[in-house]
Design a protein around this nucleic acid. Structure first.
Length: 200
DNA sequence: CCCTGATTCGC
DNA sequence: GCGAATCAGG
């Protein structure tokens, strides 16, 4: 594979979106994250600075400080949080286990940082009691990861209100293929039969 | 252990 | 120019 225009554009786009090199590599295919990083550097966009619009690329400070290695990645996406998920009283975004397209895991990181609604919130409601019990139990063991700590193999089940400090992601090992751990898969993927219309 | 980006250097 | 190996860190 080579860096044709399309691929470079994709790279630029995703990098600009804050995607990690490994994710970009996966998306592009045929390259490793090293290749992506190498390309990023060659393109001169290693620093996720929006190149100065006024042609002022704001070159790194000519700081003669001896310490070329490890340039702390000081990124501050700081999205605008505040969306009250509780507003979702009417809708019930719980995915069933059929043609449901839960958040594609490769996109989840791209979506969340953008201040978008989070994955299926367990509106503890209408869910198999057994599964629920299981959840509350494993939540004690949850690793309580932050957004940045999530990976393809950590449960992305959100717990709490994003607007409060008591917000975290489950983080337990995911069930192969799914975005959630076993317990959360249990409540997220309800058989259509069990979540029958209870009102709707 | 999982992951991140940064750098080096032979190709 | 490319990217694997390596490094430095979370």
């Amino acid at each position: 594979m080579s860096w044709n225009d399309e691929r470079v554009e994709m790279l630029k786009k995703m990098w600009g979106e804050g995607q990690s090199a490994s994710q970009i590599a996966k998306e592009l295919g045929g390259v490793t994250r090293n290749a992506v990083i190498g390309k990023v550097h060659r393109l001169g966009l290693s620093n996720r600075n929006g190149t100065g619009p006024t042609g002022a690329p704001a070159p790194s400070t000519p700081d003669p400080k001896a310490k070329p290695a490890a340039a702390k990645t000081a990124e501050a996406p700081a999205p605008k949080p505040a969306p009250k998920p509780a507003a979702r009283a009417e809708e019930q975004p719980e995915p069933a286990n059929e043609p449901v397209a839960v958040a594609p895991i490769s996109r989840i990181k791209a979506i969340i940082p953008a201040g978008q609604p989070l994955p299926p919130q367990p509106s503890a409601n209408e869910i198999d009691p057994a599964a629920l019990a299981k959840v509350s139990e494993i939540e004690k063991k949850a690793k309580k990861l932050t957004l940045m700590e999530l990976t393809e193999r950590t449960c992305k089940w959100p717990v709490g209100d994003p607007a409060t400090p008591d917000f975290w992601f489950c983080g337990l090992p995911v069930q192969s293929g799914k975005p959630y751990c076993e317990a959360h898969v249990g409540v997220a993927f309800q058989p259509m039969s069990s979540r029958r219309d209870r009102k709707r």
